[in-house]
Nucleic acid binder design. Structure first.
Lengths: 253, 253
DNA sequence: CTTGACCTTTACGCAGCGTAAACGTTTATG
DNA sequence: CATAAACGTTTACGCTGCGTAAAGGTCAAG
């Protein structure tokens, strides 16, 4: 049995363009070309096309199909396994993306004032990203994944008012830090007010409060020069003073 | 703060080509162009790029991103939901594909001699396909879906030895048919040997044997000119003779 | 003044075809 | 038997989202 390009196309459900393309890339060449230049396909080509379409269904690239069909069976199996791994990766990525889209939708649906929202979103996202990038590993090690994820979720779900309030409190802390530092005593009233405010600030993003976690964070402040730089920039020796105040506030040491 | 294209690229982790492309398609145009023709980006552009990359992470097309970023928030939510649906479809497709790849691997792993295997595979697949296409409906009507599916499964799982044996037996049947036909008697010893061999042949692909099914198939042979053509090609009147022999063998009539 | 780092535009390439356009061949019909 | 319709051919641009030259202008440093 011999088939012209249209017949084969109809039989197999592909377009003639596809067949010509497969010819062009050498994936499926006709059995012969007749005197008018027509492509003539035979049974062998029909069979090969079946295989091509089979692999194509599996999302294998035409290049890989070409390679596969020219190799013995065990190589085909290996190729399929390889391909399966790729598919797994792809699906894992898809899953992650979908989870993110879900989160974003949920987050957008909760009312957040439209106006100026774009910037706000950007800020929050950037904040979480930066947090995650800089301290993610350390914090995760120390407090576990759930704590961190919950923290991020809380941040993402935060209303704009809260966000503004949080930033305001952050600025306030710096002011109080200055005053408290002037007393020179981490157990002074001002210093304890400082620690209390810091706790409040923390609770904007932390899912729950515990003295241990608070104290742990305070220790981290000192171990991490990025933190010390931040506080010391405003008040020389501020980071250490803040830590001491928190440790006392938390009842540790 | 103003950024040249390279600065922005480094900040955001994309290439300058990407930024130029985004400019080209109008997704992210620079704040201004300086006297030397350089692209200069400002804070607004940085923010917008953040958003672009965010959506890009979610696998949204650049065209859609352009549209989304020019619309108010509730439209963005709708767009995201729409996008989510697309992702779901994509994942469902992926799952199906993966299941198929798995099946194919499992199927290939069951020992099938490497050599000449491609043809073998092709044959089996084609056989089932053809069977299904030609007789699927009729057989399904007559014996139910389970019988047919089981038959196909048995065929697909068949070892090459069995397949070869089956073909050999098929050829043998034609020979015996000739001899038996010469006796002129469907109840003759040779004719009953013929029917017995046909039963054996049948059992290669049928999940279980029953006299009724066998007799039914024999009747179908006569009703279907494709069958009669096949047997008559080798022995004139062979199809009818085979049917009669089977009917007697099966104890019908 | 030159070197090198940085900027520009233009344009081809990738996968897998869809979709003309412009033209030759075969088959059906008036 | 002429002509139209159906079928065949090649060539080539288009789609996405950039990567990767190529060919050239601009700017700060040595």
């Amino acid at each position: 049995m011999e088939y012209t390009i249209n017949k084969l196309a109809q039989m197999s459900g592909v377009t003639t363009r596809t067949l010509r393309y497969y010819d062009q890339i050498g994936l499926l060449t006709p059995a012969r070309i007749n005197s008018s230049g027509y492509r003539i396909y035979g049974q062998k080509e029909v069979d090969r096309l079946q295989h091509i379409l089979f692999y194509r269904e599996l999302d294998v690239s035409l290049e890989d199909i070409t390679a596969i069909l020219n190799k013995p069976d065990f190589d085909q199996t290996a190729a399929l396994k390889n391909h399966y791994n790729k598919l797994q990766t792809k699906r894992a990525r898809l899953d992650k993306i979908m989870a993110n889209v879900e989160k974003t939708i949920a987050h957008k649906e909760r009312g957040i004032s439209m106006q100026d929202n774009e910037k706000f979103e950007g800020l929050k996202e950037k904040m979480i990203e930066e947090n995650e990038q800089k301290y993610g590993d350390e914090i995760r090690k120390k407090y576990g994944n759930e704590t961190v994820d919950a923290s991020n979720a809380k941040l993402m779900g935060m209303s704009q008012e809260n966000y503004v309030a949080m930033n305001k409190l952050g600025a306030e802390i710096l002011l109080v830090l200055k005053e408290a530092y002037a007393t020179g005593d981490p157990s002074s009233e001002k210093a304890q007010e400082l620690a209390a405010k810091h706790k409040e600030w923390l609770m904007f993003s932390w899912p729950s409060y515990s003295k241990e976690a608070h104290a742990g964070l305070a220790e981290m402040y000192m171990a991490d020069e990025r933190f010390t730089a931040y506080y010391d920039k405003h008040v020389k020796g501020g980071a250490q003073f803040l830590r001491d105040a928190i440790l006392i506030y938390a009842g540790i040491k």
